[in-house]
Design a protein around this nucleic acid. Structure first.
Ligand SMILES: [Mn+2]
Ligand SMILES: [Mn+2]
Ligand SMILES: [Zn+2]
Ligand SMILES: [Zn+2]
Lengths: 136, 136
DNA sequence: TGCTAATTAGCAATTCATGCAAATTAGCAA
DNA sequence: TTGCTAATTTGCATGAATTGCTAATTAGCA
């Protein structure tokens, strides 16, 4: 994801307004490696801006996602998680505490896939299930 | 997943009753490669047994899953899908029609994972996103 | 400073799934 | 076969996550 300053320019350049709510979310997401849910971001945002609505958090996150600034990750645990890391990477989820961490996988493009009859593959998501150091 | 006959024995052996509803779902799921959702199974079941409840469909499917007879797959598209194929395999989903197909991936255990600090991996789910032959 | 289109907030609605309790029934024992 | 009882099924309420809708607000520009 771009920096808050770059996003500010990018938004204005597209005719989108730069509101305090959006700026706050730019800051909360930039460099965030926690893979937070909308609810988590809402509570973090509320601490700094009481009165911000959950609806706006969802709105802004999906806007950023459709601009390609965020990725949505579904780890099969209820709520979707938002990821400012748009590099090619994958995830491990701790089955104990739900913590999600980035992992980089070598050779995922070269996987030999059998049974793909007629299907063409655009992208690959790998989710490793396991335990973090604390939950082990 | 075991055959309906084997499941009948397995249920009775555990003190679980074999009801007509359960038998119908055993039949609907056995060898089913569609990765149906609970709603889909409910409508198929309703065609053969009007009055069966969606609640019972969910109940039976999760019972089968906790017995290890079914796998739950979350393809990030709303409802969970149920899979009687409990062999080590992965999935492709067509982004056009939502069709999910089984794929077998060679070498997934040997993937070189970077960034796993402290995490231990128990299992791996690979989801390929793409287009089926009809939607291409 | 004023205008206006974009945005926000709040609440309703939706979707998927689980909790609960009354009514029903499979499986067994007499 | 009959009756008992614990397991199961239903139907409905509830919950969690997300989106739809719209009146009120506001950023950005003239
Ligand atoms: Mn990530
Ligand atoms: Mn499968
Ligand atoms: Zn953990
Ligand atoms: Zn398709």
């Amino acid at each position: 994801m771009k920096s808050p300053t770059e996003l500010t320019e990018a938004f204005r350049a597209t005719g989108l307004k730069v509101t305090p709510q959006r700026q706050l979310l730019f800051r909360l997401m930039h460099g965030n490696t926690m893979h937070p849910t909308a609810e988590v971001l809402y509570s973090e945002a509320s601490a700094q801006m009481p009165g911000i609505s959950l609806r706006t958090v969802y709105q802004t996150l999906t806007d950023l996602a459709s601009m390609g600034e965020l990725r949505l990750i579904d780890v099969g645990a209820g709520a979707v998680r938002f990821d400012p890391n748009v590099d090619e990477h994958h995830h491990v989820i701790c089955q104990g505490c739900g913590d999600v961490r980035d992992v980089y996988v070598a050779g995922s493009q070269a996987l030999h896939i059998e049974g793909l009859d007629g299907f063409s593959v655009d992208s690959t998501s790998i989710l490793f299930h396991g335990s973090c150091a604390s939950c082990a």
